[in-house]
Design a protein around this nucleic acid. Sequence first.
DNA 1: AACTGATATGTATGCGCTTACATCAAGCAA
DNA 2: TTGCTTGATGTAAGCGCATACATATCAGTT
Lengths: 348, 348
Amino acid sequence: MSRGVKDGNGHLAPRALDVAALAGVSTATVSRAFNAPEKVAPEIRKKVLQAAAELGWMPHPAGAALASRRTWLAGVLIPTLDNDVFASQVGALQTRLSADGVTVLIGCSNYDADQAVNQVRTMLARGVEALAIVGESHRPGLFETITARGVPYVVTYSHRPGSPHPCVGFDNAAAFRRIARHLLELGHRDFALIHQPSIDNDRVVARLEGLRETLAEEGLALRPQHVREGPSSIVFGRQSLREIMEASGPRPTAVICGNDALAIGALIEARALGLRVPDELSITGFDDAAMAEQTDPPLTTMRVDNAEIGKQAADYLLACLSGKKPARPAPLESRLIPRTSTGPAPRL
Amino acid sequence: MSRGVKDGNGHLAPRALDVAALAGVSTATVSRAFNAPEKVAPEIRKKVLQAAAELGWMPHPAGAALASRRTWLAGVLIPTLDNDVFASQVGALQTRLSADGVTVLIGCSNYDADQAVNQVRTMLARGVEALAIVGESHRPGLFETITARGVPYVVTYSHRPGSPHPCVGFDNAAAFRRIARHLLELGHRDFALIHQPSIDNDRVVARLEGLRETLAEEGLALRPQHVREGPSSIVFGRQSLREIMEASGPRPTAVICGNDALAIGALIEARALGLRVPDELSITGFDDAAMAEQTDPPLTTMRVDNAEIGKQAADYLLACLSGKKPARPAPLESRLIPRTSTGPAPRL
DNA sequence: AACTGATATGTATGCGCTTACATCAAGCAA
DNA sequence: TTGCTTGATGTAAGCGCATACATATCAGTT
């Protein structure tokens, strides 16, 4: 050990040179023993590994990154960790990437477009070599910043036909079309909608469009007083259902909710209002959360495999990193899970 | 630009030297303009910043880390992101740390002690300068590895009196003592317990001890057939309550659950069994999840401020990083939220 | 005018590692 | 034997930056 710098314990941090000395080889061989084992004679490699273990040495990532121009870092931009949907995407992404030695940096935008840009900048400054970004409605500069750096990226959670970006996700519009079809087939003609904030959120916007489109095909539309937009909480679901049911004019026979929390709120409030579900009112959710099949009645909802999104996004980015030009991923399926919170529209 | 290395777009990545040339200063001044603005004349600084913006330059983290011996990286080890409790801790930790320029690396152990050690090793190899670790029951070597590197750390989520580690969290044993007291005061004498896996989980173990201890003070104990350990899911809660109620011998009048999911399951099953809550059976949860106040009846549970844990852990680590020897954090409060899933024990 | 001290900037070294290239040894064909 | 090839190892040059130290500048003193 040749330097004076000590770590917090008064020990000297070993370097490749120390390992090399102990093993009786050069630093080049030490490096190769770790990064290109096939180029090193087995017995030499063993000596190096043993010396490293003895000194507790690991390659210093900064030195390695500098010399090799590889950071083995990837970033993921999500709205928040406080939502299972994104948490499981991140979890799966990380599991897959770390299997290939890539470490994941997480950036949360808190649903704020400016924070999103900042987070991406920060991750880029950290040297991430690939990025997964939830959604595609971001500040204009965001994707330019990324491509200007030549960093491969993938948009997750949504898979809009015609998007200029590589995406891993499902077609949000199609998912809501599916829900609408389900209810139309049950004879519903009067719909209400309770959904999460749509600003800067292309997933939500796409869903609304899918819904409007499908209703329009039947000459139907949502009455403004039957649409509520707000935080995706049980409480907002309850409050919204009450307001919708108290509004003047004809009552809806089906309430479509942007996620299961809102739907559970609606379900609870329906009970409080003495409305029988599904006899008098049908309610749908989205996500198929664990709670959805435990409600009374169990909730009809759409199931999306978020872990699969994370995994496929990771696969795509890994392929990019290994120099391939992978094909654009195919859209994932979202699946209607019909339970008993939906039923035939009540006879007039 | 002097080198031949190109990024993925065919552009050359600018370096401090390029910025220096454009601004007509030395690289030292460029560095100072970013890292020690007060040492640079305002108009020169402005020129440098402008040149950097023009070239899209940001300090390369590897070079910076190598030269300054600072990585500005911290790690957090949690069991899983799939649990709100940990997700919000991480979220708050990250928010606080990133405000001070520290990036967070996340390691998930998936409740597996070996993975925990590996994740910590990986993060250490990445150069993290501080670590937050959920819980203290880990493989023997884990904390030694950390201290051998001289890396400051903090244990989160639990705050056991007498722990050798600095902890940010609440006293799990005390929290369950509180629950037990609450039920004892209501006159309950026959208890059941449904809890999550206790292996490698000091938080759960501490809670069980707190409970056993408090019951023992009254000469009471849990009958083995009234204790169920398994996954913390609604389904397991349901199934467990059924088994407990079907067991031979006297029935419990109160069921204590390890978290709200289990309690909600128990609540649902109680209804299915035709048991009136709280008249015939009291049920308690833990965590005070959003759903807890929406159940029928609303769930009596313990509230813990997980975001506060994350924030305080971050504060502690930040203090360590700035060279202080901060005092050991005080335990946080967990608070009983009495709702109507608990009531007086039924008369015999 | 000469000197002092404070402040701003430049010079040059090295952080720990990877890797192109040089070197060397050994095996084999001629 | 010689020359050539192949594979294993060493040599040494950076990677991009921060920073100790040297130098320059200038205001204020005497």
